[in-house]
Design a protein around this nucleic acid. Structure first.
Length: 417
RNA sequence: CGGGGCGUAGUAUACCGGUAGUACGCCUGCUUUGGGAGCAGGUAGACCGAGUCCGAUUCUCGGCGCCCCGACCA
């Protein structure tokens, strides 16, 4: 799109009420807008990134048999009372309200209860299982303290996947598939090198759950990492007993701060039993469905990417999540030939499906460069009198700073890589 | 929820018990034009309420909002 048409603008200064790097940069660059504490709107640039992340997750969830749907954010107390989680001391982050005609209502914090109840309408036989269902849906959590920019908010989109299996073994097999799929997601969005599967508390349903933690000093969590094995243990369960269980030695572990970017956990039959999700096995006996739950927050992933990959000049988006593939910059100094050439290139790139942000604004070069650095599109393409006299354009790489003059004929090919 | 801090133009910041200055932005003009230009002119501001006071943006109290530390975080 033409940058002159973009309604957002960049800012030189970060707002005073943001300390977190992710929020400072995303607001300065015009990706998000803070509505109130713990609530951020996604502006055109931010939405493009968010949608890219969502699409990557979608592809990986579909690849392991996930079926996408969308449940309601409005929750009736009914199912939650059956699981005894309507109480404020069971889930203390409920946003609750009332219907005009009377009756309580909650805004969804998670979806085990309604989904389990829903599935009971469709699952009756062992032949109906296993099933894997997921959604991208807005969660509301009345956090006592929102913090760290978009990392911990009161309203956020979550990808939540739920598995419905016939037995523990079938559940475990899928659980491991999800773990692998998650690592693929992290690799694709540029966090693969720094993200580790981490043993965490399993709560009341299982000995362990698994978190995915991205090493980052701005993280809220502390983990003990075994780089060689590529696994970690959350500080919360870092005890001699647990280490022995996992065959890990203290002196091989490294303590680091990390951001929890995903969490998967066994639910056992905790919800299927109380909500009546059972199936008839081969012998005709009713059995409770064995469940698992798997969460990823696209917004938090976006924030983590900014925390981990940005530099002094601004954001550095990995290719697969970047709002655009190329940032075309014209430096015309009033020269209409340069403008015409930049317009021509913009059309050329569009025809070849290369998503391009075209800085056609009438501002000085320095400002365009600074904005491009801040916005963080992977490839910068500069057209000026200088590049035209050299018979091409200047293409540079946001992450490593590499620059080259590329002949007209090779531009499309170059930007596709 | 415990503790701490902060609310001044669109943004970021000063000062002050006597109605506010600077920078960026924005508007006009001229010059400039490959790393956030220069000059000139202009635009725009004290969170809300009560109290003290001749007078409150400033002091006191209350409210609302925001940030940080901790706690919490299936």
């Amino acid at each position: 799109m033409r940058q002159s048409q973009l309604f957002t603008k960049t800012r030189k200064q970060a707002p005073k009420d943001e300390v977190a790097k992710n929020a400072q940069l995303l607001i300065r660059a015009g990706f998000i807008h803070k509505e109130m504490a713990g609530a951020y709107s996604y502006l055109p640039l931010g939405l493009r990134v968010l949608n890219n992340i969502v699409q990557i997750i979608r592809e990986e969830m579909d690849a392991i048999g996930g079926q996408e749907m969308i449940l309601t954010a409005l929750q009736s107390p009914n199912n939650w009372k059956k699981s005894d989680r309507w109480r404020d001391d069971a889930i203390d982050v409920w946003f609750k309200t009332e219907l005009k005609g009377g009756g309580e209502l909650g805004l969804a914090t998670t979806h085990e209860e309604p989904l389990t109840a829903l599935m009971s309408e469709y699952v009756q036989s062992y032949k109906d299982l296993p099933k894997y269902v997921y959604q991208f849906q807005t969660k509301f959590r009345n956090e006592l303290r929102a913090k760290s920019g978009i990392m911990r908010t009161r309203e956020f989109v979550m990808k939540d996947l739920y598995s419905f299996s016939r037995n523990e073994e079938e559940f475990r097999t899928f659980y491991e598939e999800v773990a692998k799929a998650y690592m693929k997601v992290f690799a694709r969005i540029g966090l693969g090198d720094k993200t580790f599967r981490t043993f965490a508390s399993g709560g009341s349903f299982s000995k362990f759950s698994d978190e995915f933690q991205t090493i980052c000093d701005a993280g809220e969590d502390t983990i003990h990492l075994h780089r060689g094995k590529g696994i970690a243990v959350n500080k919360e369960i870092y005890t001699d007993e647990i280490l022995a269980d996992l065959s890990l030695k203290k002196n091989e572990l490294e303590e680091v701060k990390a951001i929890e970017v995903g969490n998967i956990f066994p639910l056992g039959t905790r919800f299927s039993e109380v909500l009546g999700l059972t199936f008839k096995d081969e012998s005709g006996n009713a059995q409770p469905v064995v469940m698992g739950s798997y969460g990823l927050g696209p917004g938090r992933l976006m924030g983590t990417i900014v925390e981990v990959l940005s530099d002094e000049k601004g954001i550095v988006w990995p290719k697969e999540v970047a709002p655009f593939s190329a940032h075309l910059i014209s430096i015309s100094s009033g020269n209409s030939d340069v403008v015409a050439e930049a317009d021509r290139l913009y059309e050329l790139l569009r025809e070849h499906g290369i998503e391009t942000l075209y800085d056609d604004r009438d501002v000085r070069a320095g400002e365009k460069f600074a904005d491009a650095d801040l916005i963080g599109v992977p490839s910068r393409v500069v057209v000026s009198e200088k590049t035209m006299s050299e018979g091409g354009v200047e293409v540079s790489n946001r992450s490593n700073g590499g620059t080259a003059i590329v002949p007209d004929s090779e531009i499309v090919e170059r930007l596709r890589n």
